[in-house]
Structures are given as structure tokens and as C-alpha cells.
């Protein structure tokens, strides 16, 4: 009994102390005033004064500030836009790859799988950095395009949103491929043959049988890309330009450059609220998948 208690209590307390409590603190600081002292905020919550005093003193001025300055609105909207578009682009690139992997001879599959996973183990920062040398004005892409004569003037790609999209698709591709591949590999091929025997063209068999049966994989892959991209910092900071507005970058700057902790915390709370819906949908999708497997 004692053993069971320890087994539960140790990881539980660790997560409570280092995961849940910090969120409560963020929430609390998002409701306090900026102060120039260190730490730069005046706490609004004091256990001694009790919950009622706290509630009566709550002030949402940081959240009001977020709605007044259109920088924040634009940053949330543009993060959402970038996350949606890049998720779709990743799906467009990832689905054919996952499909081809699932259709490849079975003795290749383990190797193909390893080739998809290998970049995932390589440093994220380095993979983003690799594109800086490729996309810059004197970079390899421009050199190559100039050499082939497709363009006569170098294209400006680095420090634009295009570079951000390329970077996101590149780094998040494995997250999209793996769940779709897992769904497609389980797919019973005789179903497609049956559809073709019953008069479907190959394309309509794909559309009517393969796509619906890989739906859980597609949904899982899309969420696995969308959720982290929404708060992404490294990619917009290295590949994006000054006009690339993403909320992760705004939070970082609010914190490290402006040292405005209450506003940074308020930005974090709103980002979290935005993420709750996709996270809940994602978990429901995973549960459905698990139930289907059993």
C-alpha cells in the first residue's frame, strides 16, 4: 500500500509543482500591474488577504491592453493564418509520401520509416538554420535558379513569410507522415480492389475509400503540426522578417526585450485559451482511434 502510494505520489507531486503551479503563477501575474522593481510586477494575490479580497481586486487591464493594441490582435490572427496554411501545405507534401511508404514493398518499409524519423532526432535549430544558407539572396536556391536561367534577378525569400512556410513544412513533416502512414498501413487493400471491381475509377476509389479510412491519421497529423506551430518561435525568428507576426515571437520579445511580464503572461494565457479547443479535439480523436483499435 505504501509502495503504491509512493509510486503515484512522486511523479504526481513533481508535475503539480513544476507544471500546474507555474500555470497558476502565469495566470496570477497576468492579472497584476507592471512595476519597475525586480521582479517587475506587483503581485495581486496574497494568500493572507484571502480569496475574496483577491477577487474584488482582480484586474483585467493587461487583457484590455491586449485588445486595445492591434499588434496583439494581428499577431494572433497572423499566427492562426500561418498555422492553418502551413498545416495544409504539410498535409499536401506529407500525404503522398505516407501513401507511397504504405504501398512500398514491405521489406523497404522499416528503412523508409527510419529515414522519416532520422531528421526528427536531428537538432531542430540546425534544421531551421540549414535553410538560411539555402534561401538567402546569394543562397543555393538563387544560385541554382540563376544558373538554370529561370530567373535573372535573385529572389528575396529569406526573411519573408514564404521562408517561414518552407521552414515549418520541412521541420514538421515527420509529424504529419507518421500518423497518416500508420493509418494507411492498416488499410485493407481488398477494399480498394472491391471498389474498383464495382466500377470506381482508381481516383474515385482513392477519394471514396482510401481518404475516409485514413481520416484519423490525417486529423492526428494536422493537430500535431497545427498545435505547436501556433506558438512557434524559432522558425519565425530565424527565417521570418520583421513583418512576420507570430505570437510566440511577440511573447518572447515582450518578455526579453520589453521586460513587461504581466503583458507577456496575458499573451500566454490567451494563447493557451486558443489552444484548448484544438487540444481537446485532438485528444478526442486519439481516444476514438484507440477504441477503434481495441
Amino acid at each position: 500500500m505504501m509502495r503504491r502510494f509512493t509510486l503515484i505520489a512522486v511523479p504526481y507531486l513533481w508535475l503539480l509543482a513544476l507544471f500546474l503551479v507555474p500555470f497558476v503563477i502565469v495566470f496570477k501575474i497576468s492579472l497584476s500591474d507592471v512595476a519597475l522593481a525586480r521582479p517587475p510586477y506587483t503581485p495581486h494575490f496574497d494568500w493572507a488577504t484571502g480569496i475574496w479580497a483577491f477577487l474584488s481586486e482582480l484586474d483585467f487591464e493587461n487583457f484590455v491592453f491586449l485588445t486595445q493594441d492591434d499588434l496583439y490582435w494581428k499577431a494572433y490572427l497572423s499566427s492562426l493564418k500561418i498555422a492553418v496554411i502551413s498545416t495544409l501545405l504539410t498535409l499536401l507534401v506529407g500525404y503522398p509520401m505516407a501513401y507511397a511508404m504504405a504501398r512500398a514493398p514491405s521489406e523497404w518499409r522499416a528503412t523508409l520509416m527510419m529515414l522519416v524519423i532520422l531528421p526528427f532526432w536531428t537538432s531542430f535549430l540546425i534544421r531551421v538554420y540549414a535553410w538560411m544558407g539555402i534561401l538567402s539572396n546569394e543562397g543555393f536556391l538563387n544560385q541554382f535558379l540563376l544558373w538554370t536561367g529561370v530567373i535573372s534577378e535573385p529572389l528575396t525569400i529569406l526573411n519573408t513569410n514564404t521562408a517561414v512556410y518552407i521552414g515549418i513544412v520541412y521541420t514538421y513533416l515527420p509529424f504529419m507522415i507518421l500518423p497518416i502512414y500508420a493509418a494507411l498501413e492498416r488499410l485493407d487493400e481488398s477494399l480498394i480492389e472491391a471498389a474498383e471491381d464495382l466500377g470506381c475509377s482508381r481516383l474515385s476509389a482513392f477519394w471514396l475509400v482510401t481518404i475516409p479510412l485514413s481520416k484519423t491519421g490525417i486529423i492526428a497529423g494536422c493537430f500535431l503540426v497545427f498545435i505547436p506551430v501556433l506558438g512557434e518561435f524559432v522558425i519565425p525568428s530565424l527565417l521570418g522578417g520583421s513583418d512576420t507576426l507570430m505570437i510566440g515571437k511577440v511573447l518572447w520579445e515582450e518578455f526579453f526585450s520589453n521586460r513587461d511580464w504581466p503583458v507577456a503572461s496575458a499573451v500566454a494565457v490567451v494563447l493557451l485559451l486558443l489552444l484548448i479547443i484544438p487540444i481537446v479535439l485532438f485528444q478526442r480523436n486519439q481516444q476514438k482511434q484507440q477504441e477503434a483499435e481495441q
Binding site: 503563477i25 512557434e232 511580464w261 503572461s265 500566454a268 494563447l271 493557451l272 487540444i279 485532438f282
Partner: peptide, 18 residues
């Protein structure tokens, strides 16, 4: 499960404040 999908900026900020 939550930390798996939590944006790193939020995790980092909250731990620092702690």
C-alpha cells in the same frame, strides 16, 4: 499529456516565473 502539446514559450515562461 498536456506538456507534449504545450507551446515551448508558455512552458518556459511559466517555469521561469515559478
Amino acid at each position: 499529456y498536456a506538456p507534449l502539446v504545450m507551446p515551448e514559450v508558455i512552458t518556459g515562461l511559466s517555469l521561469l516565473l515559478l
